[in-house]
Design a protein around this nucleic acid. Structure first.
Lengths: 146, 146
DNA sequence: CTGCATCCCAACTGATACTG
DNA sequence: CAGTATCAGTTGGGATGCAG
């Protein structure tokens, strides 16, 4: 046997520590295939997820208010998106048993954390859109012209 | 002719000014349908776009290095993703006419700005993943149990 | 008003094979 | 190594109709 056993940390302990570190640092690495965080990230960054969270960042909204705010979303997709975000604990759904029914959607604390960063990204893209458009024009001229 | 011509600002000019303001403030609103920024945002936040930008944030990478880093991406999708990001001016492609060929992909300054915010979002989701998982468990128990 | 169920088409995706 | 081309399967997403 190697002399490793006489050190303060046995190989088994070292392995356990490494595993713990691996768990903390890598278990939810989005770059890894089949990692649950990849799915969660996709709910957040998906076409409608990002816009829905962005819209809710401004405050509580009802279903059809959201539908109008997120221009172009269908009933089906909005419903689907809200379910996914609610399940992930980013959005809180509060139904009032009135007639006609009224349902309010609000960001949870976790949802606000996420939407904060998301909105920063959205605003960044919007502000730099002219640069993007110029880059596209340059690219298309160089490539499409031939 | 109308007397509008004698005023300092003609109706046409007023309209033009309003349009300019609208252009500055709203032309790139991602919440509006058919806005070009929505497409750009989707390139950035798309399943592979986000991971590609995240990987490139750590430094320049070659095609197959990227493919390994972004676990699960196919050749085709990576190629497609890189083209879109290059066209939007977020990624710079540098091909060296050697044999075998060597192509390096790097973030542009604009790409770095975007990826910075994107990474903040990614890290946030990864760190809060346990909360998300707990929320899912609660949701499924309440809904799926019946 | 707030949804769910269904149908249906287009777009996305992924193997596979092939080129430079 | 760095892609492109093609084909087939799956999914995303919209329209419609209906229920609570």
């Amino acid at each position: 046997m190697e002399s490793a056993a006489q050190t303060a940390v046995t190989p088994a302990q070292a392995t356990a520590q490494a595993d713990d570190r691996a768990f903390d640092d890598l278990a939810f690495d989005v770059f890894a295939r089949n990692c649950p965080s990849r799915g969660a990230l996709e709910h957040v960054t998906g076409r409608w997820g990002a816009l829905t969270l962005g819209a809710l960042h401004e405050g509580s909204l009802r279903f059809n208010e959201l539908r109008r705010r997120v221009d172009g979303v269908s009933e089906k997709m909005l419903s689907q998106t809200l379910h996914a975000l609610e399940r992930d604990g980013l959005v809180h759904r509060e139904a009032q048993p009135t007639n006609p029914p009224r349902v309010d959607y609000t960001l949870t604390p976790l949802g606000r954390e996420v939407s904060e960063r998301l909105l920063s990204l959205i605003v960044c893209v919007e502000e730099r859109m002219e640069d993007v458009l110029r880059a596209r024009a340059r690219y298309d001229e160089a490539r499409g012209a031939r």
